[in-house]
Write a protein that binds this DNA or RNA. Sequence first.
DNA 1: AAATTCTCCTGAAGGC
DNA 2: TGCCTTCAGGAGAATT
Length: 270
Amino acid sequence: MPELPEVETTRAGIAPLIRDRPIGQVILRAASLRQPLAPELASRLPGQRVHAVERRGKYLILRLDDGSLLLHLGMSGSLRFLPATTPPGKHDHVDLVFGGDCLRLRDPRRFGLLLWTDGEPLNHPLLRDLGPEPLSDGFDADFLYRVSRKRATAIKPFLMNSRIVVGIGNIYANEALFAAGIHPKRAAGRISAVRYRLLVHHIRRILEAAIAQGGTTLNDFRNEQGKPGYFAQRLQVYGRGQEPCPKCARPIQQALIGQRSSYYCAHCQR
DNA sequence: AAATTCTCCTGAAGGC
DNA sequence: TGCCTTCAGGAGAATT
C-alpha cells in the first residue's frame, strides 16, 4: 500500500514527465473512487498546463493554470506513465493524456481520490488541517511532546493521526515504535521528551531509508512500475506475529489497537 | 475536545 | 478445483 515514501517516489517519478506540459484529453472510466469523479475533470482540464507536482502528506498536488488536482492513492492506487494507446486494465480508472503518452491511475480497491479545486490547494478542507511533514523541520521531539500532553490516546493511533503528523501509516508506525522501544498502547501523554527524541529519530531514519530505496525504481518509471522498492527493506515486526523478536527472540505480539493490527514485542517495548 | 466507531472496496488467504 | 467467508487498510465522517 502506498505510504509516504511511495507517494514521494511517485511524485518524483512523474514530475519530470508531465511538468510544463499541457493536458490533452481526460478519460474517466469509473464513476467514483472514494468519492464521485466530477465530470468537470474531463471538461476543465484539457488545455491546462501542469506547473508543479507537489506532495502534502500522502496527497499529490498537480498545480495547473486555473487550479489544482488533488490525488490520493488510497490503499491500492498507483500511477504509471505509458503510451496512450496501451489498452486499459480492469482497474485503470483515469487517464490524463499528454501528447502520445498518458498518466494512468489504477486503483483496484478504489479508496483513492481525485478532485479538482479552484483555490490554493493547501487551503482545501482536506489539506488545511494536516499536521507537519515528518521529514520537515516543523516535526521534532519538542513538537510531539507538546501536542501529546494530556492525550490519553495510545501512541500508535496518535502517530497515525494526520492532524498530528502526516504520512505515518500502519506499517511505519509499527516499525518506528519497535525501533524506539515504545509500547504501541502507551498513552501519548505519558511519554517523556527524551523518548520522543528517540522516536522522531527512528521515524525519520525509516522514512528516509524507504524513500532512498523507492528511488531505485525511478529509472524504469516509463515501463511497468513494478513492486515498490522499499518493500525490499526488512520489516522488523510488521506482519510477524508469533515470530521471534529481532532483539530478544521472544514472540512478537499481535493485537488490534484502534481497529488496526499492531505488532510489537511486549518485552522490548514499554 | 477527544476518543471511538463506521464506511468505502476488492484482492488475497483460509476453510471446507 | 472451487465456492464461501473473513480480513486488511487510509482517512474522512459520524457518533459517543
